[in-house]
Simulated scan of single mutants.
Amino acid sequence: MKHEREEIMRITARYVEEAQEGRSPSLSAYLARYPQYREELLDFISYYQAFEAPLPMNTSLASLSEVSREALERAYTSQAQESALSTQDVAVRSLFESRQQQPVTPRQLADVLELSEDIVQLLERRTLLPESIPATLSQCLAGVLGYSPAAIEAFFASREPSNTSSRSRLKVAEPRGPYGENQESLTFAQVVAASTHLSPERKAAWLERLS
């Protein structure tokens, strides 16, 4: 199993390298070359290509196998390191706007991140303890929005009101939900556990990852 995992990591790394060099690697060619890893490669390549396209909001982490998620995390970490010079001065103003200034809705982010809209709104308002937000979530946001993971983490760490439209914010008169008033002292794990809008399946999956 360890040998297979390392082999998949090597294959997916090669695919990412070819894609970044503009060689347009062929999915069918990879499947024909490595039929024994068909399911894992389909998972990885389909998801990676979706994240490379504008507004890749039609896939979710839950649909991926463990090895595919690990391969994606490695790919995005590698990309972030290689593109650090070009992205280090680009500040994230809002999670609801991509680097290409394309709007992203709370529902779209919730579906991609396997969260609920109320938690996405808390992330947007930067009311959670930034050190409690898992790196994998920042990496996924970076892939969706076109920023580096470091830029996403800096956004959370700033904990200042973000420049979003009033439509993207929760109105003052709206109920605050199960989190109470002092949301700035809450961790990501606490809001996941307390959310009444997150489905039981998504909640269990996130709590397992965070444990």
Rank of each mutant, 00 (worst) to 15 (best):
S166M: 15
P175G: 08
L122T: 08
P103M: 00
E201W: 10
V104F: 04
I119C: 05
A142F: 01
V144Y: 10
R126K: 10
V90P: 07
S86T: 10
E160Q: 09
T164F: 08
G143S: 05
L85T: 10
F96M: 03
A193Q: 12
L141W: 05
V144G: 08
R107V: 03
L207M: 14
V191Q: 03
L141K: 06
R93D: 09
A80Q: 03
G180K: 03
L95V: 07
Q190T: 15
L145M: 00
L122W: 06
V191K: 01
I152R: 03
S98C: 05
D111R: 14
Q100A: 15
R93L: 09
D111W: 11
L170H: 03
E97A: 02
G143W: 05
H197I: 05
R202F: 07
V192D: 01
E208T: 13
K171L: 14
L113K: 13
L141F: 08
L115V: 02
G177H: 02
D89Q: 12
R209D: 06
K203P: 04
A189T: 15
A135T: 11
A205C: 08
L109A: 00
Y147C: 06
A154K: 09
S168L: 13
L145A: 06
P103H: 00
S78K: 07
P200M: 04
V192M: 05
E208D: 10
P175N: 01
S166D: 13
Y179M: 03
L145Y: 01
L186A: 13
G146F: 04
R125F: 12
E124H: 08
S162L: 02
R99N: 07
A154I: 08
V144M: 06
R202C: 11
R107D: 00
S116R: 06
Q101K: 12
Y76L: 11
S199R: 09
A193P: 08
A80P: 06
S138W: 00
G146I: 06
L72E: 00
P161Q: 06
W206K: 09
S86L: 10
S116L: 00
V120S: 08
R126Y: 01
L85F: 11
E97N: 04
R93A: 09
V112C: 07
A157D: 07
E114G: 15
E73N: 12
N182G: 01
E73M: 15
L85H: 10
T136H: 14
A135C: 13
E117G: 06
R209L: 09
S132W: 11
P130Q: 00
Y147R: 03
S86I: 09
T77F: 12
R209Y: 10
Q183H: 10
Q190G: 09
I152G: 02
L186T: 11
S195E: 07
P134V: 01
S138I: 02
A193L: 13
S168P: 01
E174C: 01
A204E: 09
T105P: 08
G146L: 02
H197W: 04
S98T: 15
L113A: 14
A80E: 01
V191L: 03
S78I: 01
E124F: 02
K171N: 11
E174P: 02
L210A: 03
E181R: 11
G177E: 01
E117N: 10
S199D: 08
